[in-house]
Design a protein around this nucleic acid. Structure first.
Lengths: 186, 186
DNA sequence: AAGCAATGATTAGCCTCCTAATTAGTTCCT
DNA sequence: AGGAACTAATTAGGAGGCTAATCATTGCTT
């Protein structure tokens, strides 16, 4: 949830004024950027707030969703490394999340019999039923958050956001950074 | 930076398929929601990444910006409570951030002479110059992130996001309220 | 067959955020 | 004047991120 942002976004006129002292400031970019962060943060926090009522955090929920076979309602055994990869966090983070999920009886770890370096994590029956008790509310919650937009507006929003997602940064201009972070070496 | 989300967003067909088992799922809402979170997170992380090169975090940066008089380039003394309020975090969080900023010589704390319960935090000259050395890059960074969108698209995006920001939640339905989905009482 | 590099998971230590409890100082009320 | 109630800031402890270092197992190489 940790965003930490301005509670009140600056008005557009203020941005225009600020350009006088800061010629690098692009008012329309800044406005779009701040609103994007604000909207994303708000959506995130609302979900987090919903999940917390079920003793769940976004991280825990994500892990459980990854272990859950949506169609069959079954548990899929998965390695921590795979979970980390799919969730987009480090393995160390997965270790911590699985620790608490296991403590709460929602998942179990066991050694992969073929390669004892690996663990296999999967939902317990209790984990499955807990997850299934949360999902309907979670879906409703998403639907409510997007309720202010019509189908058409949602399509437009998705189209615009997709222009931003994964857009390659000019990299050179962001900072003198030769071939480091943007490279394909994750 | 802590978001923890699916690295690969589900394709729309998958969402349609999932509706079969989960009737509460609204595919277009879900798609819009996931893309919003993804785009917001990506923008946030890029900024965080930029700031970290200057030994700065979003939290530290926000505090410094709040202490900075944009027009005059001066330091504005502010109480921790006021900072917490404007930044949208708790006072305890501000205490921690100001601790490290003070340790690094970027801000100073002093007692308010009128009311010794209160502290006044303000930027040091070093804090001002550090901030001013970061700002141009920060502004460029925002501009680059929004570069894929035209002026018109930015306006549209802001308009759509504003429909979401601060939209009142039906509240009743978000709470644990299973069957009565259609009934919105307030 | 023994050693060494690679791979998977964990641990350790740090940061930012939270809530709840504590400490310090002010104000208000007889 | 002396407490009671309030308000500001901090501390304590927890969660979830991160990176870097460590431990365990595998498998390759000689």
């Amino acid at each position: 949830m940790p965003l930490l942002m301005l509670k009140d976004l600056p008005r557009y006129e203020c941005l225009l004024e600020a350009v006088r002292r800061h010629p690098d400031l692009d008012p329309s970019a800044c406005e779009a950027y701040l609103n994007l962060l604000r909207a994303g943060d708000e959506a995130y926090q609302r979900s987090e707030n919903f999940l917390s009522k079920h003793d769940m955090s976004p991280g825990r929920f994500t892990v459980m969703m990854l272990l859950y076979d949506k169609m069959a309602g079954k548990a899929i055994p998965t390695t921590p490394a795979d979970l980390a990869d799919k969730a987009g966090v480090t393995r160390a983070t997965i270790t911590g999340l699985v620790d608490t999920l296991e403590r709460d009886g929602l998942v179990v770890r066991e050694h992969d019999p073929r390669d004892r370096r690996m663990m296999l994590v999967h939902l317990t029956p209790q984990g499955v039923s807990t997850l299934e008790s949360i999902l309907p509310g979670h879906f409703q919650q998403m639907a409510q958050q997007m309720a202010p937009l019509s189908q058409d507006e949602r399509r437009t929003l998705v189209r615009l956001l997709n222009k931003l997602i994964g857009a390659p940064l000019p990299a050179a201009a962001v900072e003198a950074e030769p071939a480091a972070a943007a490279a394909h070496h994750s």
